[in-house]
Each structure stands twice: as C-alpha cells, then as structure tokens.
Simulated scan of single mutants.
Amino acid sequence: MHTFFAPDLAGSTYTLPEDESKHAVRVLRLGIGDAVELLDGRGGRYAAAVADANPKRCQLHITYHATVAPRPYFTHVAVAPTKNLDRMEWFVEKAVEVGVERISFLRCARSERRELKLERMEKIAISALKQSGQTWLPQLDELTDYATFVAAVLPETTFIAHLAEGERTALAQVAGAGSGCCVLIGPEGDFTPQEIALAREKGIRPVTLGASRLRTETAALAVVFTAQIMRDK
C-alpha cells in the first residue's frame, strides 16, 4: 500500500498537494477506490481511499484512523554536521527509521560545515517516516552554536561523547534510565578541550560508545540504536 505524508490532515477527506497528486495519479496509477495510507507525523495513521483521481488535486476519503501514543523514552541527538552532507543525510534517514524524537545540529569550533539547509533534512526525514512506517516525525533543529545549545539543556539527562582521556560511562548504562537522554556528538575533529570543559562545568557527563573510533554520523546513529535497545529491554 502506498503511503503519503499529511501533516495538516483534519476531517474525513484530504486533498494531496499538487506534486503528490501528480505522483499518485500519473506515476502510481492510482484510481478511484484504491486504498492508500496517510501519516500525519503526530502519531496519526489513516486508511483512505481515492475519491477523485485528479492529477492536480487528488482527493482521498478517510476510512479508518488510529493514533499511536508517543514513546515513553525520548531520544535526542545533538550532532555537528559533517563536511560531506551526504553522510549527515544518511544519518537522518536511518535515525528516523530506527526511531528518534529529536535531532539538533551543532556548530562547533572544529566544524567544517558552518551552514545547513534544514529543508532538505526535513524532506529526508519525511521520506524515512513513510518508508519505515513510523508515526511520529522527529523534531529537527536549526544549526546552533555549541555554547548556546549547552546552556539550554538539562544537564541531568544530557551526555557528551568525546575521545579525550578520562573516565567515561558506557552509554548503555545510562541510556535506558529515566524518561530519556540527549547525547552530544562532535565534529570530525572531535570537541575541543574548551568545549569538553564547558560541558563539564554545566554538569553534562561524558559517555563512551565503545572502543572503536567512530565517524561522526556513525557515532550519532550508534546513540539512536543504543537508546532503542535499552528502552526496549
């Protein structure tokens, strides 16, 4: 069954945007009576049937609606985007497929990417939502300076994954505790000593993701996987 994203769905009918209408009618060859699925990104899953197969405004009739409650455990990854944007797009896609509630993008001292177009990331997240059947679209935050971000988080549920020497707790030991966690992942050159010190001053605890030295996007996805495993135990 074909799935469409309908963030503004309300009532018993829904009209697809023109680009989606054209895709549904001209590419997918959907006709009157054909069944489709709609996701609103807010927990809503809808069954619908094509009522008007117009390639400019394909109208759907809602036949069933169910709401999936948000997960009780909140996973938030704050990551410095890589210079190669394809790698960050890959992370967003896979993180949404696995299940993540929020992704923030950090501008760090060693960041090679200083700007980011969030619109492209949002499109990838929506595509991953439809592909995976997830019902909650994660919140995606604009690129934010590291110091500004750190000042606004709750230190008791925030952790920093870095490669500097010192005692660190395995993420698996803390990821499943409480109602959720936020984990900071640095750029390809890691966080600077000053950034690590700032996190420590704010009460943010260091964690390790294992013995391997991971790429930025791999480390960020490892956080999502670890949180998913621990909260499902």
Rank of each mutant, 00 (worst) to 15 (best):
residue 167 E to F: 05
residue 160 I to V: 15
residue 151 A to P: 01
residue 215 R to L: 01
residue 219 A to D: 14
residue 184 L to Y: 00
residue 206 P to L: 00
residue 149 F to I: 01
residue 202 K to G: 00
residue 168 R to M: 06
residue 213 R to H: 14
residue 147 A to G: 11
residue 209 L to V: 09
residue 175 A to R: 12
residue 183 V to C: 06
residue 190 D to W: 15
residue 179 S to I: 01
residue 190 D to Y: 15
residue 124 I to L: 07
residue 126 I to R: 14
residue 138 P to Y: 12
residue 125 A to E: 05
residue 215 R to C: 02
residue 175 A to P: 15
residue 134 Q to H: 06
residue 164 A to G: 07
residue 146 Y to S: 03
residue 210 G to C: 09
residue 142 E to L: 11
residue 152 A to H: 14
residue 141 D to T: 00
residue 161 A to R: 14
residue 203 G to L: 10
residue 128 A to V: 02
residue 218 T to W: 10
residue 183 V to G: 01
residue 205 R to Y: 07
residue 182 C to R: 10
residue 181 C to N: 08
residue 129 L to M: 04
residue 152 A to S: 15
residue 150 V to G: 04
residue 131 Q to G: 10
residue 128 A to W: 08
residue 215 R to N: 00
residue 186 G to C: 05
residue 210 G to M: 06
residue 163 L to E: 13
residue 142 E to I: 02
residue 191 F to N: 02
residue 221 L to N: 05
residue 200 R to Q: 08
residue 197 A to T: 10
residue 201 E to D: 13
residue 171 L to S: 00
residue 196 I to R: 06
residue 127 S to H: 08
residue 204 I to D: 10
residue 218 T to N: 07
residue 191 F to E: 05
residue 167 E to K: 09
residue 153 V to E: 03
residue 211 A to Q: 10
residue 151 A to T: 04
residue 189 G to P: 07
residue 210 G to L: 05
residue 172 A to R: 15
residue 197 A to W: 12
residue 210 G to H: 07
residue 162 H to G: 01
residue 169 T to V: 15
residue 183 V to H: 04
residue 194 Q to D: 15
residue 162 H to C: 00
residue 175 A to H: 13
residue 145 D to M: 04
residue 139 Q to E: 14
residue 168 R to E: 05
residue 176 G to R: 04
residue 205 R to K: 15
residue 193 P to H: 01
residue 212 S to T: 15
residue 124 I to E: 02
residue 152 A to T: 14
residue 182 C to D: 00
residue 144 T to D: 09
residue 207 V to C: 01
residue 126 I to V: 15
residue 131 Q to Y: 10
residue 146 Y to R: 06
residue 132 S to I: 05
residue 156 E to K: 14
residue 168 R to F: 05
residue 135 T to S: 10
residue 205 R to S: 14
residue 127 S to Q: 14
residue 153 V to A: 04
residue 168 R to V: 08
residue 127 S to K: 06
residue 197 A to Q: 15
residue 188 E to D: 11
residue 168 R to Q: 14
residue 205 R to H: 11
residue 198 L to K: 10
residue 132 S to Q: 10
residue 177 A to H: 11
residue 163 L to H: 09
residue 198 L to V: 03
residue 187 P to L: 05
residue 125 A to D: 10
residue 177 A to K: 15
residue 125 A to L: 07
residue 204 I to G: 02
residue 172 A to D: 09
residue 186 G to K: 13
residue 172 A to I: 03
residue 199 A to I: 01
residue 137 L to G: 03
residue 144 T to V: 07
residue 141 D to H: 09
residue 157 T to P: 07
residue 164 A to W: 15
residue 186 G to W: 08
residue 191 F to W: 04
residue 164 A to N: 13
residue 127 S to F: 00
residue 131 Q to R: 12
residue 151 A to V: 03
residue 195 E to D: 10
residue 199 A to Q: 12
residue 197 A to H: 13
residue 195 E to A: 02
residue 171 L to R: 00
residue 124 I to R: 11
residue 147 A to V: 02
residue 206 P to D: 04
residue 192 T to L: 04
residue 140 L to N: 08
residue 209 L to A: 09
residue 214 L to V: 07
residue 177 A to D: 04
residue 176 G to Y: 05
